[in-house]
Computed example of a mutant assay.
Amino acid sequence: MSVLPEVGQIHSMVVCDEVTRTQIVQYAGVSGDFSPLHTDEPAARSAGKASIMGHGMMTMALSSRVVTSWFGIESLRTFSARFTAPVWPGDRLTTTATIAAVDIHGSCARVQITLKTTNDDGRLVLHGDAAVAIDFGSKPK
């Protein structure tokens, strides 16, 4: 990236068109988290849930797409998140990244980013922070 982002600049994208039950169960297999809240519909309902729900870490992974599509995966240095509401099958997830700070150190910059992921009802399901490192002094060969 040759141009530094500016504080307040926003990038938003749909990170998942539709969360599916298959996607949730596949994530359980990859993560090893087979909690009945994620994999067993009757157990989730008996626990008072409307359905099985997506893993928080799955939501975090999907949300990271907005940062990696903007700056590249190689630039990502830190990423943290707080899960604020469940993600359900059928949810469409949109993540908005806002540049919170740009700290320049020589020909490198550390960019702090605030993330908010919402479902199709506009409900906040994730609030997070990320940092990327940009070397804006080197020229591609």
Rank of each mutant, 00 (worst) to 15 (best):
M1N: 14
L4S: 11
L4E: 09
V7E: 14
G8N: 02
G8Y: 03
Q9R: 09
V14L: 05
V14D: 06
V15T: 12
V19D: 02
V25Q: 01
Y27G: 01
A28Y: 01
S31R: 04
F34T: 01
P36W: 00
H38F: 04
D40A: 00
D40M: 00
E41F: 04
R45W: 01
G48E: 00
G48C: 03
K49G: 00
A50H: 14
S51V: 09
M53N: 05
G54N: 06
H55K: 02
G56C: 01
M58Q: 15
T59K: 03
S64K: 03
S64E: 05
S64T: 14
R65Y: 11
V66T: 13
V66G: 11
W70C: 08
F71V: 06
F71S: 07
F71K: 07
F71I: 07
G72I: 10
G72S: 15
I73R: 12
E74C: 06
E74A: 13
E74D: 13
S75A: 13
R82P: 05
T84K: 14
T84Q: 06
P86L: 08
W88P: 07
W88I: 10
W88G: 06
R92D: 07
L93S: 08
A97S: 06
T98G: 07
T98D: 08
A101M: 05
V102Q: 03
I104P: 05
C108R: 14
A109C: 05
R110W: 07
L115G: 02
T117L: 12
N119L: 08
N119E: 07
L124R: 14
L126S: 05
D129P: 06
A131H: 14
A131I: 11
A133C: 14
G137A: 15
G137V: 10
G137I: 10
P140R: 15
P140V: 13
